[in-house]
Design a protein around this nucleic acid. Structure first.
Lengths: 246, 246
DNA sequence: CGCTCAAAGTGCGTAACGTGCAACGTGCCT
DNA sequence: AGGCACGTTGCACGTTACGCACTTTGAGCG
């Protein structure tokens, strides 16, 4: 493995959190500031970082150009989009697509509610495995071994009063989801927000993602949310079929 | 500058175009395949690339996570969003936000038309300077020196029958845009699609971006498009004011 | 105005580490 | 079976990345 590259990638992740100054970066990597400077110059030359007037650095234009190219490369995303839109029309609510990538569940697509309730985009973000709709919709349908691998060592941190923080309770909940064919997030990640989600399968029969319908409790009560289940499951089945499933 | 890092960043850009196999990458960099392999392993360890079943590599989850973080870091984007949404309500058409980053104009935000006409997302893409609404809306309002620097050596490639491929004609068109306060793309980039756009200024009075309203000719005729001008200019003025302009 | 401090940037000697090569194992395709 | 492409490992060489010391720049402040 390459030390230089390894360090430089750490720089990118560090700078990604928020703009950083040379000193911070050098300290973080535990290298001389001239070394950090050399990295930043190279990264800047390629547009991966950008220097701000105050000499701090933030991620640059190449970074989000490539970020979007990475997103375009996900086949699931383009296949799923039409079904997501139909689901939005039927429910009127925001539809998310989560994808399992390297052991993390990421939000990779979103179709927004007609309603003017804004929530900031989650695309690109990591979905918490134990308390988000998309993640539960995926994790519930993994083979037990894969699920164990993912959850072992994963901290079930409390986000709201409803978050399931006990591993055994979570397993029960996931088993229940598996039987029903869909998963729920009942205000487990964010107070006042609940979701219903269902898995998408690839041609080889593996879970590769999930759709979720998200809504504020204030507008959509639990019963209404549950009533979305048939349309949701149909939408994910449709997408799975297009991926060659069954 | 760091040779190792320089090469690795080339790998990322190369892989970003489409999935690549080791052999291609090694050939492209003109290095031994074991060297390319070492890069890929390090990149993969950090999630910047991902290995596909056929041993080719594509961009990975970290890449689009950071891509979105880069986007979030653009102040203009969050400031502009509400005005973009109001503009969409008024016009009913797709509104784009272009931002000037390191001498390139990039699409950084989009609010979609109500109408169900899909066009694939342009976010993260580079806007051609001479024939896209957002870019013309920015370039027209740059100081002459900056405009020259950008356009000198920039190829005015023909995209449609209406594309302006003559530098002098483009300068005239931009001068006209400057007088009017808004720019047009009259099927210059894509047949059947036209746009109207206006610039956003920063607190220091520099152009930093532009809004554009895009629509298919089939639904919106030229006169209707022009009728969007007052609302468009008002939206960009509003955003400029929030950035401290005047 | 000129002091101070922090960070940017430069040049250089040292040795660490990245490089290419060779050899072997594997899976896929013809 | 044979050929091909890729993955993986070990090693010797020398390129190049590293840290240090020094200079320059610029912002803040009395």
């Amino acid at each position: 493995m390459s030390q230089t590259l390894d360090r430089a990638l750490q720089v990118l992740e560090f700078v990604g959190e928020r703009p950083r100054r040379i000193g911070d970066i050098a300290a973080r990597l535990d290298v001389h500031h001239s070394t950090a400077l050399r990295f930043l110059h190279t990264l800047r030359k390629h547009g991966f970082v950008q220097e701000l007037p105050d000499h701090s650095y933030r991620l640059g234009p190449t970074m989000f150009r490539l970020g979007y190219q990475a997103l375009e490369g996900i086949e699931l995303r383009s296949v799923a989009r039409p079904a997501m839109e139909r689901l939005r029309e039927l429910t009127g609510e925001t539809v998310h697509l989560g994808s399992l990538e390297d052991g993390s569940v990421l939000y990779v697509e979103k179709v927004e509610a007609n309603h003017p309730v804004r929530m900031h985009s989650r695309i690109g973000a990591v979905a918490r495995l134990h308390c988000t709709g998309v993640a539960k919709g995926i994790v519930a349908f993994l083979p037990q071994a894969d699920r164990d691998e993912l959850l072992d060592g994963y901290e079930l941190s409390r986000m709201t009063d409803h978050t399931i923080v006990d591993r055994a309770a979570l397993e029960d909940e996931l088993a229940l989801s598996r039987e029903r064919g869909y998963a729920l997030d009942a205000e487990e990640n964010e107070p006042g927000i609940h979701c219903i989600s269902a898995p998408v399968f690839s041609g080889e029969g593996r879970v590769v993602g999930a759709f979720s319908v998200t809504a504020p409790i204030s507008r959509v009560d639990r019963q209404t949310l549950l009533s979305f289940a048939p349309a949701l499951v149909e939408a994910t089945r449709d997408t799975s079929r297009q991926l060659g499933w069954q």
